[in-house]
Each structure stands twice: as C-alpha cells, then as structure tokens.
Nucleic acid binder design. Structure first.
Lengths: 160, 160
DNA sequence: GGTGAAAGCTATAGTTT
DNA sequence: AAACTATAGCTTTCACC
C-alpha cells in the first residue's frame, strides 16, 4: 500500500521528465520493464500519479509578461469563494488560483500579451468583480521551478 | 517559423494530457501520425515544447500542507538575488520561487509535512538568511490550476 | 508540408521461478 | 514479486507526392 524506494525513484524520474519510457526507467531502477509497468499502473490506480503535462515556452504563445494578482475578498462564505475560484480558473489567461491565509485571500497567477492586456484583464475580470475589495498586482520578473516533490513520509522503505 | 492552428491544438492537447500519443493526436487534429511526429520534433527543436512532467499527489508524499512565503529582501543587487534564487530552488521543499515587483520581492511556494516542519523550514532556511528583511507566511487552503497556456499571438493562422 | 508502408521498438499478457 | 518470452501495437523513418 505504501510507497517503497523504487516507487519514489520512479516518481522522481517522471516528475523531471515524463518522456522517459519504460525501458529506460527499468534500467534506471534496476528492474525489468514489465515490473516497472506494473508499478506505474498501480501508482495511477492509487491516485499517486495524477497527470502528465507538457510545458510550453510562454514567449512562443505571445505571452510577454506574467503577474501575480493579490486579492482581498469582501466575504469569505464557502459558496461564494468556491464559485469565484470556478470562474477564475475558466479565464484562459489564468495559470493558477490559490486560496490562502494572511493579508490577502487569493493569489492568482496570470499571463498577458503586454501591460495593456494585463490592465484590461485585472480591471475587467477582477477589480470590477463584486466580492473583490482590493487587488495588488505584482509583475513576475523571473520564475524558478522544481518539478520534483520531496518524500516527506517516513514509510518509504523496502516494503511493497 | 510561426505556429499554425494545428501546432496550437497539439500543444493544448499535450499540456492537458501528455500521455496522449502520436496516433491519437493525429486523429484529433486530422493528420497522419507521421506528420504529427514531424511537427512535435519541430516544436521541441524550436524550444516551444520545453518539458514533460508527471504530476504527483502531494498527500502520497507525506505532504500535509503547502504555503507561500512572501519575502522582502534588504538589497536588490543582481548577483545577490540570482545566488539566493539558486540556493532556494535547491531546497527540496521548494516548488517555485518567483522574483516580483511590489510590496514583496520574492514569493516562494513550499511544501511541508506539518506546521512544525513549515516553521523549521521558514526559520532555518529563510528568516535566518542574511539579505532577508521580513517574511510573511500564508498557508494555501486550495489550489486550482489550468495547465494550458492561451495563444495570445496574432500569428496563429494557416501558415507553417 | 503531408502521406503510407516498412523497420524497430515498446507495451502487454501469460508463464515460470 | 520479479523476470522471461511472445505477440500486438505504436512510433519512427524514408521515399514519394
């Protein structure tokens, strides 16, 4: 039921490069391709693997800048917040929306063609939204990402 | 050189599910598998496709909570900032680090086992760092993501 | 650029240890 | 639980349009 070291190794490899296929994974972890295949099927079935996504260069999509919208909400009622999140994530320019504690209630990561597009996006889709009290916009100069999650559970031993 | 509609369609499909392979993609966009293969090779060579990453359930890795660390830096010298970013992204608990404009200088998305682990992480790796003036920590209650970037360039027509 | 057939490889199932 | 073998299917290449 729990993940062993080989599972964790496979997950690490696939988080960094999911193009790497069975044969190579098998060589990497020292098992036969069929065994690796069984393990991956189990990891998908268990809900440990939840998706595989291609990463695209934003510039190639005409994206000239990215920003973080830090939003304060007037009310925190569950139904309203859930509906707002649903709406937000349907906006094509939105990458992520996070509900958080602290000074702001919501952080929304958006992409835009240029500053004019960003202004329209912020004003038309967020500032003007009932329920939004205040927005602070931060331009993102640079993003560094780490694709691999750490194994923080203690149960990653030799048990399968 | 520019991307046409079919390229954009392929990218959209792969951003949402990169397991979908050649044959199915070909059926989706109405081309032969070999043509799709050629296009994808071109998109990788052009640097439009930059990676494929598996997504893993944080809970399965023993991750009990995620947080945003909003950081103010004392100085904004290029060399110092770049080095700090390099250091940060080597910390296993870090998912992303973003250099931004506005009230804060840096937003760091981290994962942790529990609040005690988060406290240790924040105090040992960030608060105590020379160059960090102040940190605000926000717990993430919920994240919604959209894996597909919008095509914002006007040149996505029938030209190849 | 796109197509279709041939070659090579990967994935899957069944069997053995 | 892992490894091996065999088959089916897909990916990739290439000559041609």
């Amino acid at each position: 039921m729990a993940l062993d070291r080989i599972d964790v190794a496979l997950l690490a490899l696939l988080q960094n490069d999911a193009r790497r296929a069975n044969k190579q994974l098998a060589a990497d972890v020292g098992l036969a391709p069929s065994s690796v295949h069984e393990r991956l099927k189990r990891l998908w079935a268990m809900g440990v693997l939840t998706g595989i996504h291609a990463e695209v260069d934003p510039a190639a999509m005409g994206i000239g800048l990215e920003a973080l919208l830090m939003i304060e909400l007037a009310k925190h009622e569950r139904a309203l917040v859930d509906r707002f999140l649903d709406e937000i994530v349907e906006i094509p320019e939105v990458r992520t929306a996070q509900l958080i504690t602290g000074r702001y209630d919501l952080i929304v990561h958006v992409v835009a063609r240029d500053t004019r597009h960003l202004k329209d996006l912020a004003l038309d889709r967020f500032t003007s939204h009932p329920g939004v009290t205040r927005i602070e916009t931060s331009i993102i100069y640079e993003t560094r990402a780490r694709h691999e999650l750490p194994m923080l559970a203690r149960d990653a031993d030799a048990t399968a």
